[in-house]
């Protein structure tokens, strides 16, 4: 589980100021905000625009272009399951259906108890150990229903 801070204008401003000094700073700033708060809060968008002399529309465009950036806080745990071809060749589709049924969520959704967010990922580079997943930043290869089920049970308990 990853602990995130509560959004505050002061913390947001500090994170933005810290990352704004480099060339092409917009994406590094958004990453830093998401690392801090777990997502990119809407209130931060005009602040990023101001710091980089961009329009709000431009920053909004960047936030929404990249799959990584969330616009709402995630669940306590984030599970990314690889949907790409190599994982499909090892039974990925059936495994994902199993996970979705077990969690009762679709892609990009969070369980009603706020514990688990399920996200698709298109390749973790673990194609020789498929099917694979990343759970709270930790990688898992060679998954099957039993192993993934155990991981899900652990997340629900913590």
């Amino acid at each position: 589980m990853t602990e995130f801070e509560e959004w505050s204008v002061a913390r947001g401003a500090a994170i933005i100021a810290d990352a704004a000094k480099q060339d092409g700073a917009c994406i590094p700033i958004l990453h830093a905000l998401q690392r801090g708060f777990g997502y990119v809060p809407q209130e931060a968008v005009p602040m990023v625009a101001e710091a980089l002399n961009l329009t709000r529309a431009e920053v909004h465009g960047v936030v929404t272009f990249y799959h990584d950036f969330r616009r709402e806080p995630p669940g306590r745990h984030v599970v990314k399951l690889c949907r790409a071809e190599a994982c499909q060749s090892m039974g990925g589709v059936a495994l994902h259906k199993h996970a979705q049924e077990k969690l009762r969520v679709g892609w990009g959704e969070t369980t009603t108890d706020g514990r688990v967010t399920l996200e698709p990922v298109y390749c973790l580079g673990l194609c020789a150990c498929a099917p694979s997943a990343m759970v709270d930043g930790k990688v898992y290869g060679g998954l099957d229903e039993a192993k993934l089920g155990k991981l899900i049970d652990q997340m629900r308990a913590a």
Binding site: A84, E85, A86, C87, Y122, C123, G125, L126, C127, A128
Partner: peptide
Amino acid sequence: DEGDSGTYADR
């Protein structure tokens, strides 16, 4: 940005 499924040489 090694995004191709089935590749991991860069990694």
